[in-house]
Design a protein around this nucleic acid. Sequence first.
DNA 1: GCTTGACTTGGAGTTAACTCCAAGTTTTAT
DNA 2: ATAAAACTTGGAGTTAACTCCAAGTCAAGC
Lengths: 129, 129
Amino acid sequence: MTIKQVSEKYQVSEDTLRYYEKIGVLRPVPRKNGIRCYGQRELDNIEFVLCMRAAGLSVETLERYMQLFEMGDSTAEQRRQILIDQRNSLVKKLEQMQEALKRLDYKIDVYYTEILDKEKKMLRKGDEK
Amino acid sequence: MTIKQVSEKYQVSEDTLRYYEKIGVLRPVPRKNGIRCYGQRELDNIEFVLCMRAAGLSVETLERYMQLFEMGDSTAEQRRQILIDQRNSLVKKLEQMQEALKRLDYKIDVYYTEILDKEKKMLRKGDEK
DNA sequence: GCTTGACTTGGAGTTAACTCCAAGTTTTAT
DNA sequence: ATAAAACTTGGAGTTAACTCCAAGTCAAGC
């Protein structure tokens, strides 16, 4: 798979894919004549990275994780700890977002009744004339 | 309440509070001798803004919302629409984050069993000798 | 064999959201 | 009344995460 196809498949710019590779968030992609050929292993990894990015994990965190990964099995415990830390802050963020959602829903509802009320008043005004 | 107290109460920098006021995310705060005095109305607003920011709403969106607010009742419908749009993208983000959480949990579990396995192997090796 | 178009690289530029700074004013404690 | 502490302003600087660009390579169609 070429970079262009990957870019389209995952809705991510080619620049970003190259950027992630350059800084080590993605492992070096195999080339043919210097051109990147993405295989299943690469695609799986990209999917994971994009999922984590969408959830708000920093590029730097993913970088650190991948560095440990490159260093081999002995870093498994540290990698696991990173995942646990990220999991915890993800849960916290989820709670904050649910709180925000609640507030938004409430406000939307207040607007709804406000606007309805105003319309009613307008109607009555229409009657008076 | 002074800016410093607000800053401590909500864990937000004084600079950020001034910044939000400068760009119009917060209404102009009443002054005494040029010094900001935050009242309940201001605090409520700050809490709302911080909650929305924590949930990922952009400063620009909040700015736009406040501009409409300043323009009076006739903009209620537009403001409501902003809230609805933000609500929807919030829900989408929540789903993405839940997906990421699932993946993280899975990976953490995989690491756990991997590490356990390795420890068991190490023990056996110890036996062999 | 030459042009077209997709690809490569390193590096500069952009954007959002702060964050810091310098220079000045005001309030408070001595 | 003066030194220190806390505040003010406008504007410059920083950071993360891209995003764009120039200059060059390479295979494919005419």
